[in-house]
């Protein structure tokens, strides 16, 4: 029983952290139409930033500033934001598939830098020895994980409220207009380039926050945590849940993370031994099939975007957009 509960706590924590990242991607893609193929770079910047700033002094890599935890987390978000700003400045003029390729490339480069710039990043060993906040008070056991989960849920809620308010605001309307038709938006006096950059950086900061929490949870980050598969997972969550719908994005995070964990368990349990060597690859293929299948059969996701009549502070009228592809 305790085993199940503590597993559920663990599962919910990871799913919620990934959910925060999906919300960040939803701001970029769902609301603004920015095809970020390098989600993991922001995630990694947040994780590495947080652990380097908040960890104890140690040999072998940069960092160990032992900052007060919230500051370290903010620093991780800042790192993700600065990286996104630089990448955005260079690539946001690119559209759609080109932007996707460029950002994917950035993420691969990021992973390589983390792996090879050993004196800064700890190389393949990653950043170790991070002391999780409040550990001296809460210990390392179930209590800690339960409290940590509560903290993650609070952060998730804050991000959710922030994004929901944003969606129904005139700013959200502006993002959607740029997503729908940049030329028309420009002809009505809006500046797409600036707004796209703001959306990209804000989304990346949120993804960086998720990365920071992820690193904190495991008290460890290494190049293995910033592989392209994570980008695909987060995309699958958004596509399955429903791009443009904050709640859908969250639901997608839990569904896909559940399916991922379950498939891993099922493969290890029931697949022939020879196949078990390839569990990761099989899951990779499965997630690709989920994305493709979803795009073919229900491109709007399980929870399609609602047609929002922006009315900040009012009881909002929401009608579902039907049959969009």
């Amino acid at each position: 029983m305790i085993g199940i509960i503590s597993y559920l706590v663990f599962f919910t924590t990871v799913a919620s952290i990934l959910g925060i990242a999906v919300l960040g991607l939803n701001l970029q893609w769902g609301n603004t139409g920015l095809f970020n193929g390098g989600v993991v770079a922001s995630f990694g910047a947040g994780a590495y930033g947080t652990l380097m700033l908040g960890g104890p002094a140690q040999d072998g890599h940069l960092g160990g500033f032992g900052l007060f935890y919230p500051l370290a987390l903010l620093g991780g978000m800042l790192a993700a934001g600065v990286l996104a700003w630089i990448v955005g400045k260079l690539t946001l003029r690119l559209r759609h598939d080109y932007l996707a390729i460029a950002t994917f490339g950035v993420a691969v480069a990021f992973e390589n830098v983390m792996r090879n710039a050993t004196s800064i990043t700890g190389g393949a060993q990653g950043i170790r020895g991070f002391e999780r906040p409040l550990r001296d008070v809460l210990g390392d056991g179930f209590t800690y994980n339960a409290v940590f989960l509560a903290g993650v849920l609070v952060v998730l809620l804050l991000v959710y409220v922030f994004l929901e308010r944003l969606t129904v605001s005139p700013f959200g309307r502006l993002l959607r207009a740029i997503r729908e038709d940049e030329t028309a938006a420009r002809s009505l006096g809006k500046s797409p380039d600036r707004i796209r950059l703001i959306s990209f950086v804000t989304g990346s900061v949120i993804i960086g926050l998720a990365g920071g929490l992820y690193g904190t949870f495991y008290a460890f980050v290494s190049p293995q945590d910033v592989l392209p598969i994570l980008t695909f997972q987060i995309w699958a969550m958004l596509i399955v849940g429903g791009a443009g719908n904050t709640r859908g994005a969250l639901a997608g995070a839990f569904l896909i993370w559940g399916a991922w964990t379950f498939s891993g368990w099922a493969l290890s349990r029931f697949a022939p031994v020879e196949a078990q060597l390839y569990t990761g690859s099989i899951q990779f293929v499965l997630i690709g099939m989920v994305i493709v299948g979803m795009l073919l059969w229900r491109p709007q996701g399980l929870f399609p975007e609602r047609l929002i009549v922006s009315q900040p502070g009012r009881n909002r009228e929401k009608t579902q957009v039907e049959g969009f592809t």
Partner: peptide, 24 residues
């Protein structure tokens, strides 16, 4: 060039300049 997945009302409400709510 309509903003297709936005309501007609939202299409129209977008246009005025200098809306206070248009910043993050």
């Amino acid at each position: 060039r309509p903003f297709g997945r936005m309501s007609v009302l939202e299409n129209v409400m977008l246009a005025p300049m200098d809306q206070a709510g248009e910043t993050l």
